[in-house]
Design a protein around this nucleic acid. Structure first.
Length: 743
RNA sequence: GGGCGAUUAGCUCAGUUGGUAGAGCGUUGCGUUUACAUCGCAAAUGUCGCGGGUUCGAGACCUGCAUCGCCCACCA
């Protein structure tokens, strides 16, 4: 053996061996059908309950970042259960990541001086498709380099035909169950990205803006958005406000930049008499509260801002100006005309911004597809409350409940090309008729299918149908991922592996993804999609700052793997960090982990040398229980170390089953280095004989097994070099876990 | 406006049901021809953010407060 461990000579070779021997493929054990055995009360439990994890599919639009290396938790769980002899499945996949990917791709186009507008829809889609396929290949290579024992024979992509078919089926089912509706209402719209968003894609930011006090005849109203006043269709006051009683129901007539204007004064409870002057302008097309008032008071809705972020012709001379410049210009002109009473320059308020590009979100009137969330949220809340799903660490339950208990309907329409196009067709003739009759919500005339273009309009038999150009919010397909994957991999997978055992992911997508998977999973399959949610923290840069492209502090896990070895990277990520807490990338910790791999290696080297020296006549059995080992040992000290190792195996097993990964790593590190190597080996060194050698070697084998889930490469390499007997199995990764324990 | 987390050795962080503080890195001293200098032995360093409280006993539990970070939130 070399004097030092060189991961570069080992890792690729070992991974290839595992893959060629097909160790990663999950095997459904037909002799131990699990199926209905989930019902323990029936007494029909047969075989072992399988263990399954669906890999959170990484976005196929960029190489993996260090955060993805946290998948190590899933790999160690899978390897742990596989060694325990439990049929284990870890299913890989990739996400097309609709909007995110289109955004990234547009950045690439920009560098070439192009934009999405330069290409027809199909061309743009095809270009992004190719871009994504390239990325997928790269990502899979990265996952292999990290040693992840993913079942590549079952890999899925969110745009696989069979996945899309399921997404369509779900949409249709929801539509038929009256959970989907189309409505024209104010949605979060980013004029830069050119699409609407759900509430989760909107950030909030504090900002200082001038608050203008504008004269509306006898009343003064306060606003930060004078540029939208062209769309005012009322003035509102609180019904209890004594100052304004005499105006309620009256028509005000007053001067504006565009001449005389008449507005009715309405009374509404949402108006806070203590804000500003207690009177507000009502601009239904650009403010949600105003939009709701418009509904209650039957007000006209006048659009001032267009989808490109510029004022419409309603703004007269200000038409075509961008919101920001329009605001400035309008305010200046109003001052000149004496329409502004005063300006509070120090007004601080919260604005909504696009989570991606930071542009101020415009509430925009747009017909979109919505999912009614409340009926879906209730069972999802129940599932956790009743313990059908367990969230670890439990502190995250609060966030889960808070999201679901205050849930609002989900806008799933996106005005982008990259994604799954919504299978909704509108009859052009019916739509026109509806419009003429003054119906604005276009509910009629829409045909939802499972993806097939309908032959003709169901109402008027017209063949003039147009498909909705919008695509689904990526998270709509993601929400179906656990059952969609298992229903489309291999026959029997869904029946055997669903519900999955663990959903392990970053806490940052608890609401975006996990909660939605629970809701949609329960709705479609009537089962929870997973029994355990395990949430890890973020990996930040060495200074504790969040990694991001704009900061330029992204770390590619492969660089670290190259330098320290995959085992060290994996170990460093679980060592010294409590589950669910953020951690800063630590080079000293990586270095310590790398030294640990070397320590392991040198223990092996020592044992190897002793083997050569002693040339023992027996073979080391891989299958000895610790009890059997105790009977074999003759030296009292050796027996003590058997007990200590037994205790370690018990503790590590318990820690892994309780998701206390840091405890497991810390105990293994401490025991291996400072107990086993520093004390035991130093002791046995002086007195080693055949019998002690047998104990030493066997205990070391147990350590290798216990370490294998976290550090698979170095442990496997050593195991292979020890060339254990046939009875012990050909690979550490499929050998038996040294301790049985259930919690 | 609400919520969550953090505050422990110089630095980065653990501390699992309350029992006189731990790791890695760093520092200091000593050692090492034979598993490993990617090493060993030894040592130093903590009013566990601050104030109350519960308890025989609190870093851990309760309650205030401070600082930092994150998340949620339609007062124009």
């Amino acid at each position: 053996m070399d004097k030092a461990y060189d991961h570069k000579k080992v890792e690729d070779k070992i991974y290839k061996m595992w893959e060629e021997k097909d160790y990663f493929s999950a095997k459904i054990d037909p002799s131990a059908p699990f199926g209905n055995a989930q019902d323990k009360s029936s007494g029909q439990v047969k075989g072992k309950k399988p263990f399954s994890i669906i890999l959170p599919p990484p976005n196929a639009n960029a190489p993996l970042h260090l955060g993805h290396a946290m998948y190590v938790i899933e790999d160690l769980l899978i390897r742990f259960h596989r060694m325990k002899g439990i049929p284990s499945l870890w299913l890989p996949g990739a996400d097309h990541a609709g909007f995110e990917t289109q955004f990234v791709f547009e950045k690439h186009l920009q560098k070439e001086g192009k934009s999405r507008m330069d290409y027809p829809r199909e061309t743009l889609y095809r270009m992004i498709w190719d871009f994504v396929q390239e990325n997928r290949k790269g990502m899979e290579g990265q996952l292999r380099k990290l040693g992840f024992s993913l079942d590549w024979s079952r890999k899925k992509f969110t745009l696989d035909k069979d996945i899309i078919a399921i997404v369509y089926k779900t949409f249709k089912k929801m539509y038929e169950d009256n959970l989907i509706y189309r409505e024209e209402r104010l949605v979060n719209y980013c004029t830069y990205c050119g699409t609407s968003f759900s509430d989760l894609e909107v950030n909030h930011r504090e900002q200082k803006d001038p608050l203008y006090f504008i004269k509306y005849g006898p009343l003064i109203i306060a606003t930060v958005r004078p540029e939208t006043k062209f769309g005012d269709t009322a003035v509102a006051v609180n019904p209890k406000d004594k100052r304004y009683q005499k105006y309620i129901g009256k028509i005000l007539e007053f001067d504006t930049l565009l001449g005389k204007k008449k507005l009715k004064v309405i009374a509404d409870d949402v108006i806070d008499p203590n804000f500003g002057t207690g009177a507000a302008k009502v601009t239904p097309a650009h403010d949600e509260k105003d939009f709701e008032m418009a509904g209650r008071h039957d007000l006209e809705i006048v659009k001032v801002i267009d989808f490109d972020g510029r004022l419409t012709d309603i703004a007269g001379p200000y038409e075509g100006l961008r919101v920001k410049e329009a605001r400035k210009k309008v305010a200046e002109d109003m001052k000149t005309k004496g329409l502004i009473e005063k300006v509070d320059e120090e007004y601080i308020h919260i604005i909504e911004t696009c989570y991606k590009c930071g542009t101020t979100i415009e509430p925009m009137l747009l017909p979109q597809w919505f999912i009614k969330m409340e009926p879906l949220a209730k069972p999802a809340i129940e599932a956790v409350k009743k313990g059908k799903i367990k969230i670890t660490p439990s502190k995250f339950e609060k966030i889960y409940f808070q999201f679901l208990e205050n849930i609002r309907d989900w806008n799933i329409s996106r005005q982008i090309v990259w994604g799954i196009r919504i299978p909704a067709w509108q009859c052009v003739r019916c739509a026109r008729t509806n419009n003429e009759e003054g119906k604005t919500n276009n509910k009629d005339g829409w045909i939802i299918t499972d993806g097939q273009r309908p032959e003709e309009c169901l109402v008027c038999k017209s063949k003039d149908l147009e498909q909705d150009p919008d695509t689904f919010d990526t998270w709509f397909s993601s929400s179906q991922w656990p059952f969609a994957t298992l229903q489309t991999t291999k026959p029997g997978d869904y029946e055997y592996f669903y519900p999955t055992t663990v959903m392990e992911t970053g806490y940052d997508i608890l609401r975006w993804w996990v909660a939605r998977m629970v809701m949609v999973g329960l709705y479609v399959t009537e089962k929870v999609p997973f029994e355990n949610v395990v949430l890890h923290g973020l990996v930040n840069d060495p200074l504790g700052k969040k990694m991001s492209k704009s900061k330029g502090n992204i770390v590619n896990p492969l660089e670290l793997v190259e330098q320290y070895g995959a085992d060290a990277v994996r170990f460093a990520l679980v060592f010294g960090t409590a589950l669910g807490n953020d951690q800063a990338l630590s080079y000293p910790k990586l270095d310590a982990a790398r030294k640990f791999t070397n320590k392991l290696w040198n223990i092996a080297r020592f044992i190897d040398m002793k083997r050569e020296a002693l040339n023992p006549k027996f073979e080391i059995s891989n299958n000895k229980t610790i009890k059997q080992l105790d009977n074999l040992a003759r030296n009292k000290t050796d027996k003590e170390w058997i007990n200590k190792t037994e205790k370690l195996a018990k503790d590590v097993t318990e820690d892994l089953e309780k998701y206390n990964f840091n405890f497991a790593a810390e105990k293994l590190y401490e025991f291996t280095w400072h107990q086993f190597a520093d004390i035991y080996i130093e002791d046995v060194k002086k007195r080693i004989d055949e019998n002690s050698y047998l104990i030493l070697n066997t205990l070391y084998l147990i350590l290798l097994k216990l370490l294998h889930p976290i550090m698979p490469f170095v442990t496997e390499e050593i195991y292979q070099r020890f060339n254990p007997p046939a009875g012990g199995g050909e690979s550490l990764m499929i050998s038996a876990w040294p301790h049985e324990q259930k919690y």
